[in-house]
Design a protein around this nucleic acid. Structure first.
Lengths: 149, 149
DNA sequence: CTCGTTGCAAACGGTTTGCACTTCT
DNA sequence: AGAAGTGCAAACCGTTTGCAACGAG
């Protein structure tokens, strides 16, 4: 958090960009939020306290976060880009509940290794991957049972 | 191919929908194409021989294919839905070249098993998953070397 | 004849951009 | 002062839909 703000300031400086009130606000809101939020999510969040900040500013600031490595863009097939704080976390993949939308994370080094093998076998130099599991989370399963579906 | 056409006809009949010239044309073009094409791709393909078929028809017909199980929608993060003929093929995942866009397929039962384990450990009932590896295919690596990047 | 289908054009929804105005440095 | 940033509104782009004319059963 503290060092994320530092990282962003250094990035701006080094790129000859300016540190502004709006960027501080957006970064602060971003860091305080649960991860995996869309531009709209963050815009709504920012807007509550700072109603005059525009959607475009939030959008452009998120792109800056991505560029400087503070955030990563994710796409879970729901038609919007979601931004994840990369922070201090290592690589991980996602479990997405198709009912309530909750996103949890997992990590499995055996899968990572198998992926590398597969890429190599196909002559690919792998630069990234996406691995999402979709299904019903425990809570939504219960609810379905309770409602008798 | 032959039985895919049969399958589609049966589907239409059973749903009380009509078999039309346009649907035959779109299905034929779809089955003759390499898989993983977007609506636009298929529209362009159809349009060459049948310039009066509309984009909307192609779109709606692809949705019908999806509904009847002939095709599956895929999303490789390039901002468009791609349709894959399910045909007789079993489940598989994808390797996507970030340079030329070529898509190849892979299958790994060990990964499938590990996924099931992970879902179970998180209390998820997994209904589907997406697993894409992105990188440079062998051909594009060569090209990069030749151009000296 | 009837109801589903087609082609067009317009609506949509999330993302991106042009521009006049403002704000850092 | 000068370059970059902001907010607005409009453009964009793939997807989806309303509707009048059309065509299969």
């Amino acid at each position: 958090m503290r060092q994320s703000k530092e990282q962003f300031r250094r990035f701006l400086l080094q790129k000859g960009l300016k540190s502004t009130r709006q960027r501080e606000i957006v970064l602060d809101a971003f860091l305080r939020s649960s991860t995996h939020l869309s531009t709209e999510d963050l815009y709504q969040k920012v807007r509550r306290r700072h109603p005059n900040i525009g959607y475009a500013t939030v959008h452009r600031t998120l792109k800056l976060f991505t560029e400087c490595g503070l955030a990563e863009e994710r796409n879970f097939g729901d038609g919007q880009i979601r931004y994840e704080w990369t922070g201090d976390k290592s690589h991980h993949d996602h479990l997405v509940c198709i009912s309530c939308g909750v996103i949890s994370e997992f990590e499995d080094s055996r899968i990572e290794q198998l992926q590398r093998d597969i890429a190599a076998r196909h002559g690919f130099v792998m630069t990234s991957h996406r691995h999402d599991l979709y299904g019903l989370c425990a809570k939504c399963q219960e609810e379905k049972v309770r409602k008798g579906c």
